[in-house]
Nucleic acid binder design. Structure first.
Length: 906
DNA sequence: TCGCTCACG
DNA sequence: ACGTACGTGAGCGAG
């Protein structure tokens, strides 16, 4: 039996670092650790070490680096690599940690003044060959393939660093049309290299170079035999370029005799030093790596600065506490009674929609007394110890997703008073980017790694399955409960540091209960109204479809933008106005610009109806609960970057209103009792009022204090309309667009597009606006400066949004962050206000002993159902509670309307 | 699963 | 020179 040769792995540090850096150059500003160190090259390099070196387990390994700019090559040829751009600072700062990374992976680094990494590798490769090693070289530079022999293979990364070509002598012959590895320098000598900036022979490219070397083998031999060549332009070029060819060949040749000062025996590969690499990864914010290591059973210490206990003891073992879960049985059920006055509780469901999902298990306990797990949901019902504790208002509950838990328990007949800590909610408040609803992912983001993601444990999509083995499910649930417990103190401490304790205690946590109530109450939808609409719309669609086929001259899928594009812009020959990534754009914006084309008009009508039909009529019919004829949306309280709610399953925040045909959908939303009415109350111009408040702009405030029509007032100011003149409707429309623009973080381009003026005119309008409202101008400059300095912006209630891109080099990313810096405090503060109003509203309704129910929130609007008799009270109470939610320097104005249906409450 | 389109504030 | 208005969710076609 043949013994396998020992292995030597040689890594071209510089070329791979460059490859890794430029592979992620687009996202260079996204890969930044908490200290501002760029990490894109580090990430790529680490993947390479993890993905190639560690599994390879070579006997010997070495990473070679360039020592500096000056080498023997620069001495021979002044301009060698002379046209290279300066190495970007973002990469330069990564070299030192790169070397550290190599060391921590158990690999020796080496550099040699006067030589390039290539030469070190060439030299070491020959040393290895002689000593009987199988040598593998990993590089991003294909020229290294000149070192290939039977014993030396070269792996070259391509497409960034994700794919690798393996070069053997056979592979070289294939790529270079039969040439040997040694002949690669001959080809390079003739063709030159633009990136290394040596010339080769002018007028000779790779094809000719290969052809010549097939015939003459080497450059010196070619010049010896040059007389055999027939007279030609090419021959003249070769003769003229002889000196360049020879010197270029020399530059291309990797040295195999560099004076390295080590023996092979000093290159032993030691493998990663986990003890040391974990803090290194923590420093770089390599979360994914840490999760992987935690899953492999390594202990991850708490990140520095995070304290585990109130006593200030560092959480050294936060991720290393052995899990103690016990299956809850009849015999140990009484242990539950001894858990004390604070517990973690988690109820697992088989679907994210907690209104309909089935409970599949739960965990209850704490670190002090252990955790108890069960699949038996009967253990939660009335009369059990678990039931008593959950409903005991003196016992603090620590949970993940309080709202979902409350709604799901409510379906089982339980309440959940005294929720102290909601991991999902707190993590979101600390950083709205942590809006993942998976506990594992979220815990990892916050430095706790001893819990896996649901996707890992349960799978996803069609593969989703709750583990059959008790031990698998129970371990996951136990770890979830521990994650909640362990993250409580550090995250609550962070809330306090961020001055967000009030936001949490007084707004978000109370709101959770209010929302749970609204969702569970639901709103009644009259299916018959929708069914009638459906048959009418079906008819209209069929008619329109036939019309469209006639107008187009043939049948096609009207709903396919791709097919429509072909019909309009190829068959019918209209000029495309806008393109998308994948083809012609056929959006409303484009179609409306096409003028009076009958087909286009039909398409627009068809799309409108089809939208109403599929999204609203059919979409709503699908989600009406059979049991109560209601729809129960879920408000996502931990998703948006600004602090708004969002609504899913169904989305009740985008029910049509602007166009009459769609608006009729609202006729299906009715009160739950006969004779009751729907009442809707909305804030007038809440965002502009918030803007007036936080900018302190006197002119803007004055307009609101005097109760003026705000868009008309803006029009007077920016278009210089006198007090006696009337504001023309079109002018007011433009001013309205300007006001919107200001709220969105205005740009001349955006405004121009929106109101159809030139960019120059738009810029003029904006300049005038800022002259007229100097407080707004000053504030927008200050908020951007503050974002740059602190890295985040805040709402009135200290809701925080981080803006890492505010310092991006990329103009688009940076501009976007700047607009966001202006918009988020405005949109977010408006969200703060209505949230407070909702909390106060529930209390006001309860205190007044009313039967009326708050059902929906649509950003600046609240919708109620009420018995006829309570309406007079509501028309007074609702606007009062809403307009007094937060005292601002300008008044908040609320209007209320009632009707038989949501449609009529206008 | 992604991109397009379109519904809302 | 760059090429964008802010925040969402759902349905559909196409790969």
């Amino acid at each position: 039996m043949k013994m396998a040769k020992p292995t030597l792995l040689l890594i071209d540090g510089n070329s791979l670092a460059f490859r890794a850096f430029f592979a992620l150059i687009n996202q260079v500003d996204r890969f930044v650790n908490h200290e501002g160190l760029h990490t894109n090259a580090l990430v790529g390099f680490n993947n390479l070490l993890d993905g190639i070196v560690d599994p390879f387990k070579p006997d010997l390994a070495l990473v070679a680096w360039d020592a500096g700019k000056t080498t023997f090559r620069t001495g021979k040829f002044d301009d060698y690599k002379g046209n290279r751009d300066k190495t970007p600072q973002e990469l330069v700062e990564q070299f030192e940690p790169l070397r550290k990374m190599v060391e921590l992976h158990g690999i020796k680094s080496y550099e040699l003044p006067g030589y390039e990494a290539d030469d070190i590798i060439g030299t070491t490769a020959r040393m290895g060959e002689v000593a009987g090693y199988a040598v593998t070289i990993v590089t991003g530079d294909r020229d290294m393939t000149q070192l290939v022999t039977d014993d030396v293979s070269v792996w070259v990364t391509k497409k960034g660093i994700s794919e690798i070509d393996h070069y053997t002598p056979a592979m070289v012959a294939e790529v270079y049309d039969g040439l040997t590895p040694a002949q690669i320098v001959e080809v390079k000598g003739l063709q030159g290299d633009t990136s290394d900036n040596y010339p080769g022979v002018a007028g000779i490219g790779p094809k000719t170079a290969i052809k010549l070397m097939k015939e003459y083998h080497t450059i010196p031999e070619m010049y010896e035999r040059i007389d055999e060549m027939k007279a030609s332009k090419q021959k003249e070029k070769l003769i003229a370029g002889k000196e360049d060819a020879l010197s270029s060949r020399d530059l291309a040749t990797i040295r195999t005799n560099a004076p390295v000062d080590y023996d092979l025996s000093s290159l032993t590969y030691n493998g990663p030093d986990y003890e040391a690499i974990i803090p290194f990864y923590q420093h770089l914010d390599f979360k994914a790596q840490l999760v992987k290591l935690a899953n492999q059973g390594h202990t991850i210490p708490a990140p520095t600065g995070v304290q585990n206990g109130a006593d200030g003891e560092p959480a050294h073992d936060m991720n290393n506490t052995p899990l103690e879960v016990r299956s809850l049985t009849a015999t140990n059920l009484t242990h539950i009674e001894q858990l004390g006055d604070e517990i973690s509780f988690y109820l697992e469901l088989d679907d994210e929609n907690y209104h309909t999902a089935n409970p599949v298990g739960f965990v209850i306990g704490n670190n002090e007394h252990g955790y108890f797990v069960s699949r038996d949901i009967e253990l939660l019902v009335q009369g059990t110890p678990v039931n008593r504790i959950l409903q005991d208002a003196t016992v603090k509950k620590n949970v993940f997703n309080a709202k979902g838990t409350i709604v799901a328990l409510r379906r089982l007949g339980l309440t959940l008073p005294n929720v102290a800590f909601d991991l999902l909610l707190v993590a979101y408040l600390l950083d709205a980017n942590d809006n993942n609803n998976d506990m594992g992912a979220l815990a990892h983001e916050n430095g706790y790694y001893a819990v896996r993601t649901d996707e890992e444990v349960y799978g996803k999509g069609a593969k989703f399955a709750i583990p059959e083995a008790d031990e698998d499910l129970f371990e996951h649930l136990g770890r979830k409960a521990m994650a909640i417990q362990y993250l409580k103190d550090p995250l609550m401490a962070k809330l306090a540091e961020h001055e967000q304790t009030q936001l949490y205690d007084d707004i978000e946590l109370p709101l959770t209960s209010v929302l749970a109530d609204m969702e569970a109450t639901g709103i009644t939808v009259d299916a018959n109204t929708l069914l009638e609409m459906r048959s009418k719309l079906t008819e209209r669609l069929a008619e329109l479809e036939q019309t469209i086929y006639q107008q187009a001259g043939h049948e096609f899928n009207v709903q396919s933008p791709k097919q429509l594009g072909v019909v309009l812009f190829e068959e019918m020959g209209y000029t495309p106005i806008k393109k998308t990534k994948t083809g012609y754009s056929t959006s409303v914006e484009v179609l409306e610009k096409m003028g009076d084309v009958p087909l286009v008009a039909s398409i627009l009508a068809y799309r409108q109806i089809a939208k109403i039909q599929s999204t609203y009529v059919e979409g709503l019919l699908r989600v009406i609960h059979g049991s109560d004829s209601k729809v129960h949306t879920r408000y996502l309280q931990t998703l948006t970057q600004t602090g708004r709610l969002s609504s899913v399953d169904p989305n009740l925040q985008n029910i049509p209103v602007r166009i009459e045909e769609g608006r009729r959908i609202r006729k299906a939303f009715v009160p739950r009792e006969k004779g009751w009415r729907i009442l809707s109350a909305d804030y007038s111009q809440i965002e502009l009022r918030v803007l007036a408040h936080i900018t302190g702009d006197k002119h803007l405030q004055e307009a609101f204090i005097n109760g003026e029509d705000i868009h008309a007032a803006t029009a007077r100011r920016i278009f210089g309309i006198g007090p006696d003149e009337t504001v023309d409707g079109n002018i007011r429309r433009q001013a309205k667009a300007v006001n919107f623009g200001i709220v969105y973080g205005i740009s001349d381009f955006g405004l121009a597009k929106n109101i159809g003026v030139s960019r120059k005119q738009a810029k003029q309008i904006i300049d005038t606006y800022f002259e007229q409202y100097p407080g707004v101008k000053t504030w927008s400059e200050e908020i951007i400066a503050a974002a740059r300095e602190q890295g985040y912006v805040e709402t009135i209630a200290h809701r925080r949004r981080y803006l890492p891109d505010i310092k991006a080099k990329n103009f688009n990313l940076r501009s976007f962050a700047e607009r966001t810096a202006m918009n988020s405090p405005i949109q977010g503060s408006a969200a703060d206000i209505i949230k407070i109003a909702m909390i106060n509203m529930e209390k006001a309704l309860r205190d007044a002993g009313l039967q009326s129910k708050m059902l929906l929130q649509v950003h600046d609007e609240l919708i109620f159902e009420a018995p006829e008799s309570e309406l007079p009270i509501l028309h007074e109470l609702v606007p009062r509670v809403m307009d007094s939610a937060m005292p601002l320097d300008v008044p908040l104005i609320v209007a209320s309307h009632e009707g038989e249906t949501w449609y009529d409450a206008k």
